[in-house]
Design a protein around this nucleic acid. Structure first.
Length: 259
DNA sequence: ATTGTGGCCTGCCCGC
DNA sequence: TGCGGGCAGGCCACAA
């Protein structure tokens, strides 16, 4: 469930290692590397390199090491541990325990520190020089104009648009449902059918929801989240929530105020 | 251009 | 008590 909020927490933690020199790197198994990156590529690219900037685009964490960019995707259950310190204790849909067999990627630094990715389900991956242009603008930084333009132009549903990382990056399923709930828009609404007021409401909810849940400390800390279950009711008006699959994802929304 | 399906993989919870 | 089935959601390949 790491969405942009969690990955931003990871980015800040990883930034503590800026300036250090990488001495070792390891990746478990063969399926955690992606995009043609091999173990040998990775080792020769990062070992002896110095950690420069640590960036984030959407849910993608970018570590600049020497002349190389190492991209880390956390999938659903990826957590980052820096110098032995767990950056996020509780992650939904996975265990909070730290187990050796969940270690998928690790960097060792010459000062003895480490940067470790734990990922029980191994949906995440690591890739050298990932294509950043395949991701749309980060949801936190996208301009209001660009955001509103997206809604005006897209013929897909709101749910599909907000989850489309090529158009706007960083929003996951939980954040998406919370944003739509706060905007009073139904997930299956066709984006370009929204009027100006509705577009304004949804696009401002993107920003305010992310800001708000960042303050609370996680994308699972929205108002809607505790009600995402069979007997769940709308925290706003008490109506029984609807559930259905929209854009291939489980969606919960209020039939009373999300139109 | 857009939507739908299935697969990846493990932990957790439910019912038998 | 233990087992198995279903489900959670990020992301991709593929089909329609």
């Amino acid at each position: 469930m790491p969405e942009l909020i969690e990955v931003e927490i990871y980015r800040k933690a990883a930034a503590r290692t800026v300036g250090r020199t990488v001495s070792t790197v390891s990746v478990s198994g063969n399926n955690y590397l992606r995009g043609g990156t091999s173990h040998a590529d990775l080792r020769s690219a990062v070992c002896g390199g110095q950690l420069g900037r640590v960036r984030r685009k959407g849910k993608l964490l970018l570590l600049e090491i020497g002349k190389t960019v190492v991209g880390v995707r956390f999938g659903m259950t990826g957590r980052l541990i820096v110098d032995g310190e767990v950056t996020i204790n509780e992650l939904l849909y996975t265990t909070d325990e730290v187990k050796d067999r969940h270690v998928r990627f690790s960097l060792g630094f010459n000062d003895g520190g480490t940067l470790v990715v734990l990922d029980p389900r191994a949906f995440g991956n690591v890739e050298l020089n990932p294509d950043e242009s395949s991701l749309g603008p980060d949801a936190m930084r996208i301009s209001n104009n660009a955001l509103q333009g997206l809604f005006q132009k897209s013929r897909s549903t709101l749910k599909a648009l907000l989850l489309n990382q090529q158009k706007i990056s960083g929003i996951g399923n939980l954040l998406c449902d919370e944003i739509l709930w706060r905007s009073g828009a139904a997930p299956a609404r066709i984006s370009c059918s929204l009027n100006c007021d509705e577009i304004e409401r949804v696009s401002s909810a993107v920003k305010t929801t992310i800001r708000d849940l960042t303050k609370r400390g996680g994308s699972h800390l929205g108002e809607l989240q505790p009600q995402r279950h069979q007997k769940g009711v709308c925290p706003l008006d008490g109506a029984r929530l609807n559930q259905s699959t929209v854009a291939g994802r489980t969606s919960w929304w209020c039939p009373e105020h999300q139109l």
